[in-house]
Nucleic acid binder design. Sequence first.
RNA 1: UGGGGUGUCGCCAAGUGGUAAGGCACAAGGUUUUGAUCCUUGCAUGCGCAGGUUCGAAUCCUGCCACCCCAGCCA
Length: 557
Amino acid sequence: MNESLEKYPPNFIRSIIERDIADGKNSGAVITRFPPEPNGYLHIGHAKAICLNFGMAKDFDGTTYLRFDDTNPLKEKVEYMEAIKKDITWLGFEWREVRHASDYFEQLHNFAVRFIKDGKAYVDSLTADEIRAYRGTLTAPGKNSPHRDRSVEENLDMFARMRAGEFPDGEHVLRLKIDMAAPNINMRDPTIYRIRHTEHHQTGDAWCIYPMYDYTHCLSDSLEGITHSLCDIGFEDHRPLYDWVLDELAMNAHPQQIEFSRLNLQYTMMSKRKLKLLVDEGIVDGWDDPRLPTIAGLRRRGYTPESIRDFCRRIGVTKSDNNVELALLESCLRENLEATAPRVMGVIDPVKVVITNYEEGQVENLTSANHPKDESMGTRSVPFTRELYIDRADFREEANRKYKRLVSGSEVRLRNAYVIRADEVIKNDGDEIVEIRCTFDPDTLGKNPEGRKVRGVIHWVSAPHSLQAEIRLYEPLFTDDFPDASDKDYHDLINPNSVTIRQGFVEQSLESSEAGKQLQFEREGYFCLDSNDSKPDKLVFNRTVGLRDTWAKIEKR
RNA sequence: UGGGGUGUCGCCAAGUGGUAAGGCACAAGGUUUUGAUCCUUGCAUGCGCAGGUUCGAAUCCUGCCACCCCAGCCA
């Protein structure tokens, strides 16, 4: 993929950065950060943020920090941090440095003490419920806490004792003293520290008070010298608080927070909380289940980093609500795989074909191109024998002229091999076809027969040489196109056919295929070996995505 | 009902006062030993609605309308 093509097309964030550079703001530097909380796996919505943060910085010769927003030890795990790093790297991005919000705990604490000394923060001893009641509502102003006017000395003393562990969880909090009547609820004396007697995955038992997001994020950004702090639109009305904290502290660096809208993708959900439920309830196979929109799931399914980056570029960056069609993601995938995936043959729903005029025991090694347009991908040898498998959908006893496959009494081309004619059908007691007896025309290898036109081409494998394989076909996990927006419980929206298991046969050359390597099963779609379940003696393939299927559309009419 | 946002083709999205890019999807045709790919063509007298300013408005002004987000000691 061309470097310049990888650049983001025009968008409002790019415009802001360009203007800042032109104005000489930040001496022309562009420093961004990707700040995930390690409380779950990354999904395609995060990919949008990753591509934006890393991509934008790269486009302007800037750099990007990976910062774990680890201010809530109750929900976070090192396992998630490792998974996040792996996913970002796999997507093709390099961070300048890994940081943690917890790296700044000491500085954050010092700033808090400064706020107290300046009379701009106080220890509140109301319960959580009382704080909520005092906050007021969307339309009614809040009331001042009775503890709001504690003296600086008392606040200092109590905050020190909070840190020293003298109080149980929930007994006190530290709040900023702003304005309980502010129309923006985020400005009604936000809580910035709470007591949590919990071990932290990075700082161990060094702390029993932990700073909250709004307070931590802006200061972490400032301390790192972030120039453009890109976040999702949910934080738009937190921006006044972001700016307030930095202004009150007169921080040297005051990053600019810019909000963009989250990705909404058809037939899936992006909420980390709900994804975790799907995993915890066993509705899916784990965070890397190929039906999930997680980066790990997409990877296991067979998606490529290039296709995901391309997708993120094509969906653009705006502040408007969006409902992106799955077809766009799939189109990016197919475009990438069309060019890069070697072709092979695999039969998903096999039925036996016997070529009655082909000598028993004979084996011809036919040469097949690995790609129809890219000769550099080379060729491979595919064995042809008397007994083959073809797909059930590629044979009909009767059909009209639109059907261009094998029909009783007529001919079809076997891909990369001969033209055959169907002579006889053998069925079992259940009226199910068990064998199709055919004859082949030996003069049709690499050339068209004389005097007649053969319209169809179907794929096949040699019965004695092919390898048995489990093939997993996927459909969307949800039946509703935007399950997150549905009124119904998500359990009632699960697609019962989200995975279909088939026992098929694939050509011999796949014996040594590696997990995750993309292949095209000709006429079927793109597949890869499952990284978790495939074994040398039990191959398991995931269908990443099917080929565009014009025939299915015609047939539907 | 307070505050903050958003409204350009079925979906995404450029556009920043000079007469509606592009992609996906869809449709029609051509090539083809993948009903794939590729190629060609078509697809908004119109930019939430109504007024106004202007020679000229998706872009500026006014007033409406619709939708989304916010009341964690989560991020």
